[in-house]
């Protein structure tokens, strides 16, 4: 470490020493500024949030099933927004978590250096595409594409079996704004996050472990699935949590593609949740920010939503950090 270097200050005059110290303090000031950013976020969110809860009761916010701050008698129930966010996060996770892990294993264990040199910048660009363009793509191109074969009727229990009642699963046709296309693009955009962090964890597994497994007669498949991936579990799980937190905080793609109609999830016909429009926490914030009149409780509700989002993502990020530290296998 460079920190342990003794600084030879033996024969420097006072001004030089003072200058050195001044630069040290200035740089430390830059570091402390990042703490101030966190503090600023917490203060600005909590201040307005407290004002909001002096006007709207906390219980009705956290248990309310109706979110309509801009129409008539305003209702501030956050549950529809939370359920909208969770559904999109869940569906995008179904895409991103397996695909991202597979990409990480492939890049770290199987890919030739040449393939890596093409695939990795490609994934970096995938991560760099602005989310507003993902949203536009989902709305204008992906929805018609996914809607092509719909509506579908899938007979789960074939007709003609006398014992059971006939049961057909109906996949409804997609609305213009729908959860499915938004979830797909969110899933695609968090693939690079899963793959890059997981790949770091997988490449950190020492080669001696692999060689030992090969020495025992394992195939490459066995080594990858039974030795390398288990040894990198902590990193992989933390990449999963970070990616989920990113999906929860994702804003523009879901605002554009999933629409602006907050609603509680449909229960028996689950698939309608994907086909219909919905609204996430982030999209609700954008809607209020873009509204004509935003004063009083409406304005403050934006901060309450921000606080909700901040707490959820903070807990998830801390969880990821904890998993990485607690369950990390130390190899030395």
């Amino acid at each position: 470490m460079s920190n342990n270097q003794p600084t030879p200050t033996l024969q420097r005059d006072g001004l030089a020493v003072k200058k050195e110290k001044l630069y040290g303090y200035l740089l430390a000031g830059c570091g402390v500024l990042t703490l101030l950013v966190t503090l600023g976020i917490i203060l600005s969110l909590s201040g307005q949030t407290l004002i909001f809860f002096s006007e709207v009761s906390f219980v009705s916010y956290i248990t309310g099933t109706d979110w309509s701050p801009l129409i008539g008698a305003a209702d501030y129930g956050v549950l529809p927004l939370i359920s909208g966010t969770l559904i999109i996060t869940f569906v995008s996770a179904l895409i991103a978590l397996p695909v991202g892990l597979a990409a990480a294993i492939y890049l770290s264990e199987y890919a030739s250096p040449k393939a890596r040199s093409i695939l990795k910048p490609g994934l970096e660009i995938l991560a760099g595409v602005p989310t507003v363009i993902y949203g536009y793509f989902a709305l204008v191109y992906l929805t018609p594409l996914l809607d092509g074969p719909l509506p579908l009727s899938v007979p789960v229990v074939p007709a003609g079996i006398p014992v059971l009642p006939e049961f057909t699963l109906v996949i409804p046709s997609l609305q213009t704004f729908n959860v499915l296309s938004a979830s797909v693009v969110v899933g695609i955009m968090i693939i690079p996050m899963v793959s890059s962090i997981s790949e770091d964890a997988i490449s950190a597994v020492p080669d001696t472990l692999r060689n030992a497994a090969y020495g025992l007669g394992s195939t490459k498949f066995d080594v990858s699935t039974k030795v390398v991936v288990p040894a990198a579990t902590s990193g992989i799980v933390s990449s999963y949590v970070l990616a989920l937190s990113r999906a929860i905080g994702e804003t523009m793609a879901v605002t554009i593609a999933a629409g602006m109609s907050p609603r509680m999830p449909y229960f028996p016909d689950i698939l309608r949740n994907l086909a219909d429009s919905s609204q996430t926490i982030t999209a609700a914030m954008v809607q209020i920010a873009g509204a004509e009149s935003r004063s009083g409780a409406v304005f403050e509700s934006m901060f309450a939503l921000g606080m909700t989002l901040f707490v959820i993502t903070l807990v998830m990020n801390l969880l990821a950090e904890l998993v990485r530290r607690r369950f990390r296998e130390e190899y030395s």
Partner: peptide
């Protein structure tokens, strides 16, 4: 302090961008 800064920076990286928007709004408008 340095450890705290490190943890803080990795947490800031995970804060959703809309929340930074709220920070900007509060800071510059309020």
């Amino acid at each position: 302090l340095a450890t705290a800064l490190d943890v803080n920076i990795s947490n800031l990286a995970g804060v959703p961008s809309v929340v930074y928007g709220l920070l900007g709004l509060a800071l510059f408008r309020q």
